[in-house]
């Protein structure tokens, strides 16, 4: 069965969603990701959705759930690369995804994760991590 690949990048995990998601794939992905966070001790998850041309309430809920589960597992989730048309549609749909952090692209998402990680470790001047 096809799966969404999860890449390890230092202390973070990067997930690039490219396929047109069908529902079963979404559920499998949720299992895979939480399992990976727990196993690797990742401190942050970047979900790149720049390839998605639509996000409906089912996928929206999945993203919100992942953010919630990750937080419990002590990892921060940042959703990056949402397209303008997708963002407008989600807002109109009534799905503002409160509590999910966002960034324009992977690079900026990484900065965001580093910064918040740095603050949590009390290293306010230098957000870089030595892993």
């Amino acid at each position: 069965m096809e799966r969404i690949p999860i890449l390890r990048m230092g202390p973070f995990l990067l997930v690039t969603i490219q396929v047109d998601l069908h529902d079963r794939l979404v559920v499998t992905f949720q299992d895979d990701l939480t399992e990976q966070i727990s196993r690797t001790g990742a401190r942050g998850v970047l979900i790149d959705i720049s390839a998605l041309d639509m996000v409906d309430s089912f996928m929206g809920r999945m993203i919100a759930n992942i953010a919630g589960m990750s937080r419990i597992l002590d990892a921060e989730t940042v959703v990056v690369g949402m397209r303008p048309a997708v963002a407008i549609t989600l807002v109109e749909l009534g799905l503002a995804l409160p509590g999910v952090r966002t960034a324009l692209d992977v690079e900026k998402g990484m900065e965001l994760l580093r910064a918040s990680r740095g603050l949590r470790l009390g290293k306010e001047e230098d957000g870089d991590l030595e892993d």
């Binding site: 529902d23 639509m54 997708v86 407008i88």
Partner: peptide, 17 residues
């Protein structure tokens, strides 16, 4: 328009589900 396409696709996805 791209936005209108996305809105209709999303609505269809919701209702099909």
């Amino acid at each position: 328009s791209l936005v209108d396409q996305t809105k209709m696709i999303t609505a269809a996805s919701e209702l099909a589900r």
